[in-house]
Design a protein around this nucleic acid. Structure first.
Lengths: 213, 213
DNA sequence: TGTACATCAGTGAACGCGCGTTCACTGATGTAC
DNA sequence: TGTACATCAGTGAACGCGCGTTCACTGATGTAC
């Protein structure tokens, strides 16, 4: 145990001889809930199980959350953050001219979105769990907005078509992600086919954005 | 009680003095499950409650379904049929030329899809319940395929762009429906705004289909 | 046409399960003086 | 620096709930002769 780093909470947790006061139970519970969600979606978030995994009594959770619902809400937030990160982290191929570059950036966001859904279906479902309270406004939406603004600025898209353009783009990408998700109508496709359908849909978006008036 | 019509099952049911043999329990249970799904989505399908509503003992249901899962599967099928009907029933505005007419037909399918999701969120969710077994291949998909074929035949869409065109169109429409569903990120929009976003997305699809190469 | 009997389609009680939530409690911590 | 005490963050046992499923059973139906 040479490793001295880690978060402040971990430090407090490990430092104190007593484990009575955990130090960061709230975060620890969300982390456990997050892992449950990762494996089985929002339905798999079980307050008792999260407490069990953290090694704490069930009722201790009620010091930090008003109940099951608020734990799920916190987990949903975390899942949304992960989706955001996946979108932002998707590589963008360098293009010759600004218009192509701006379009490549828009499409990369979509690609990251779909790939995240594919890689982490449980988290993706949790991020859009309709039963859980939404704690924050969507930063993913803001990311897409900015990319579309740049698309207009680059000349790749008409300014007149800009207002409200987020919705159809988001819809196409979100719909594809949902349809290809495990259990969905397109879930039986091979990985290669899924890739193909993703690129096809991104190309579809490309053509629509360029030709909208 | 002048009404003599009705299905054969209902006839048998009402005719016999004894109610011991229901005559059509399987259908009656699915119908009850369907109403539960309509109100609360697939999660609301409770085998015991369905039996209760039909007025039959719980264990009677096991004569007709292997268990809860198969009841949900049957209900999912029914919900899919309703979606199909809503798509097919959506009115198509008459257009001057064949190309516009073919496009109007494609977009009407999408409009019907989104409107069904909006009007019957519980059924829409049930139709795409990832946990339930899928019993039949999607007739909705076939409907869309034919409409796209006609689009090519009419000259509104390039033949080269036809293969695989179902996916992006379906994705855009499905995504919009999901995002606007109760609890979704766009669920807070007013009815007028939802209408606007729907038309915008259909227009988006229109432009993409026309300009794809 | 009547009767015996296999089969079909119900009944109702019971089971175990794991969940979310609540309760009275107690040990640890930090602050005022 | 020490002490009293309020507050904070845990414990563990218990509750009720409604669910899906199973079981031994019984009444109704239809068919063979």
């Amino acid at each position: 145990m040479i490793d001295v780093g880690g978060t402040e909470e971990m430090a407090r947790r490990n430092a104190g001889s007593s484990k009575y006061h955990h130090g960061d139970l709230a975060n620890a519970l969300v982390e456990a809930a997050f892992e449950l969600a990762r494996s089985g979606g929002p339905q798999a978030i079980v307050l008792r199980e999260a407490a069990r995994r953290v090694g704490v009594s069930v009722s201790a959770a009620y010091r930090h959350f008003t109940g099951h619902r608020s734990l799920v809400g916190a987990t949903k937030s975390r899942a949304q953050e992960f989706l955001l990160k996946a979108m932002a982290a998707e590589p963008v191929e360098k293009q010759d001219n600004p218009a192509d570059q701006a379009m490549a950036q828009v499409l990369a966001l979509g690609r990251g979105y779909v790939r995240f859904a594919q890689a982490e279906p449980g988290l993706f479902r949790t991020a859009f769990d309709e039963n859980a309270p939404t704690e924050q406004t969507s930063e993913s939406f803001a990311l897409l907005s900015k990319a579309l603004d740049r698309l207009v600025a680059s000349g790749a898209m008409r300014a007149a078509a800009r207002p409200g353009a987020e919705t159809p783009v988001w819809s196409a990408v979100h719909g594809l992600a949902e349809l290809m998700l495990d259990g969905g109508p397109l879930s039986r496709l091979s990985d290669a086919e899924k890739f193909e359908e993703t690129e096809r849909t991104l190309d579809f978006i490309n053509h629509a954005l360029v030709s909208m008036e």
